[in-house]
């Protein structure tokens, strides 16, 4: 594949330091599940890739991390941009991916398509970078519990199918296997690591 140089957009303005700041942000998001963190540097990403998801890709992906783009994101511009800036091998099957980037949230079912890691190597599990659709005001609230949460925290997110939450629950007994999720809006990120349990709020 030869890139279309004409449409290529830059990555981070300061590749090393911006990636370090965004890495700190991703770390905070995964260690404080359910709390939104503003992404400190947002690259000019090619549509339909969102700036926050693009920042996560620039920060986390490299030549050694196979990356899967969902069908909505598998455009020449997005594929070319990811390859140009990260060198990550783009894979056609979700189970091959270390990172999976998802824009079509309605289709985010059957999470067992992704690698859950193995009992011996749970680090081989996939991390899903999810671009949420514009959020509705009256989204269902979920009560999150688990490591990194003092008691419980409420998270209201719209656009994720019930099967997404059900599959996460189904993986709970498999721990340390499972998938980690980074939910993104255009400018912020929220972590849902495999250790976080979510229940639909009775009040919601």
């Amino acid at each position: 594949m030869t890139l279309s140089a004409a449409t290529l957009t830059p990555g981070f303005a300061d590749a090393v330091h911006d990636a370090q700041a965004v890495f700190r942000c991703a770390l905070t998001a995964l260690s404080r599940p359910g709390q939104w963190a503003a992404v400190p540097h947002l690259p000019p990403a090619p549509a339909p890739l969102s700036p926050a998801a693009a920042a996560m890709i620039l920060t986390l992906a490299d030549m050694d991390t196979p990356l899967w783009l969902d069908p909505v994101l598998s455009t020449p511009d997005v594929s070319g941009w990811v390859r140009f800036h990260t060198g990550a091998p783009l894979v056609s099957l979700p189970e091959q991916a270390a990172f999976a980037v998802i824009a079509d949230c309605a289709a985010l079912t059957a999470l067992d398509r992704f690698s859950l890691g193995t009992a011996e190597a749970p680090d081989l599990a996939a991390t899903l970078i999810v671009q949420l659709p514009p959020q509705e005001a009256d989204a269902d609230a979920r009560i999150l519990t688990g490591p990194g949460i003092n008691g419980s925290v409420s998270l209201s997110v719209s656009g994720l199918p019930d099967a997404f939450w059900a599959d996460r629950d189904a993986f709970a007994p498999l721990f340390p296997q499972g998938v980690d999720v980074l939910l993104t809006t255009p400018g912020a990120v929220c972590g849902l690591p495999r250790t976080t349990r979510a229940t639909l709020s009775a009040a919601g």
Partner: peptide, 8 residues
């Protein structure tokens, strides 16, 4: 010029 990819 602008950097598409700054020197790395």
């Amino acid at each position: 010029y602008t950097f598409l990819r700054a020197p790395e």
